[in-house]
């Protein structure tokens, strides 16, 4: 099972490679990928260095081109596909039909992975992308239970990649307009959820903080309370007169304990979320999953998730909390 790790910049890419990633995924510094945050991602020269660094060590680089271009901007996405091919990427990760179809036509030798943003949750949907765009792999949205993942891995026309760890989108990826409903900036089209330019923190005289997105109150925190990045899905709201995390708590997905089941289901790759995170995160999380995978390969029957691994992962989780998320039925 391949370990696919995030690279938001060149130091993170090198850290991921150095600590055991089989492949890294990265994006260009524009809106062609779903982590289009200021100061993140790669220009061509950096990516060329990154591809060189990975290839010298026998690892792979996948380029995420996983946003949805509108009609007037489709040409820019096509040119990003060309750049990925020229830079020697081992695959592109894309969601949008026109992007995938263009890549298949213009660069048939460049493998195409279906992004999680493609929202494909069934064998039928995967057949569509396979037959229409010749995808070589598909990343599943974080909505399926472990039993459903196992079934889908058995019936899908292509190898499956699943998310193993990292911040958890509570909504089906590619099908969430909560951020654009408040800001007009679309994660699907512009590659960023809760853009920083719409976020405003305020601290009261007592040390309590409020955070707003385009003026809308997302949450309020007591002076000592940890406060995460304000996405609509992880805010506290009033439903039926009760204030709570009505959609989801700030927490990270952690599937470590499911690793043997994912392996025996034939899942081809596990993915670590977090291109927006720094070198320390990439180093610790990649290293931990590398150890877990190596230990599993060496001793599948005796494998147990070590407490030290779980401590490291929890320390790097959003809100220092982890969940099995949708893999576990009770979460639903």
């Amino acid at each position: 099972m391949q370990l696919v790790c995030p690279a938001g910049n060149l130091p993170a890419l090198k850290a991921a490679i150095d600590h055991g990633a089989d492949a890294v995924y990265a994006g260009f510094r524009d809106q062609t990928n779903a982590r289009a945050f200021p100061g993140l991602n790669f220009d061509e020269s950096e990516l060329r260095q990154g591809v060189g660094y990975a290839h010298q060590r026998g690892r792979k680089v996948y380029i995420a081109l996983n946003t949805y271009p509108d009609a007037a901007r489709l040409v820019a996405w096509q040119s990003a596909v060309n750049r990925a091919a020229e830079l020697g990427a081992d695959a592109i990760i894309a969601a949008e039909l026109a992007v995938l179809e263009y890549a298949a036509r213009a660069h048939p030798g460049l493998p195409r992975h279906l992004s999680v943003q493609g929202s494909a949750t069934t064998a039928a949907a995967l057949r569509y992308y396979y037959e229409r765009c010749g995808i070589a792999r598909a990343v599943l949205p974080r909505v399926l239970s472990i039993q459903q993942v196992e079934r889908l891995a058995a019936t899908a026309p292509v190898p499956i990649e699943v998310f193993a760890f990292g911040s958890l989108c509570i909504m089906v990826e590619g099908r969430c307009q909560l951020s654009s409903y408040l800001t007009g900036a679309s994660p699907n089209r512009h590659g960023v959820c809760s853009p920083a330019r719409f976020v405003r923190w305020e601290e009261g005289p007592d040390g309590a903080r409020t955070v707003r997105l385009n003026g809308v109150l997302i949450d309020r925190f007591d002076p000592e309370e940890p406060a995460g990045y304000p996405t609509v899905c992880k805010g506290r709201f009033d439903v039926n007169g009760e204030i709570f995390h009505a959609l989801e708590e700030p927490t990270s997905l952690n599937t470590l304990e499911l690793l043997p089941r994912l392996a025996s289901a034939g899942v081809a790759a596990i993915k670590i979320e977090g291109r927006q995170r720094g070198v320390a995160y990439v180093t610790a999380v990649t290293g931990t999953w590398r150890q877990a995978l190596d230990r599993l390969a060496a001793d599948p029957a005796g494998w147990q998730p070590l407490p030290a691994w779980q401590r490291t992962l929890a320390a790097h989780a959003e809100g220092h909390q982890t969940t099995l998320g949708p893999y576990h039925r009770a979460w639903h």
Binding site: M171, V172, C176, Q177, L178, L247, H332
Partner: peptide
Amino acid sequence: LPLSWSARC
């Protein structure tokens, strides 16, 4: 307007 879907209810 329908804005999002989730596995969670």
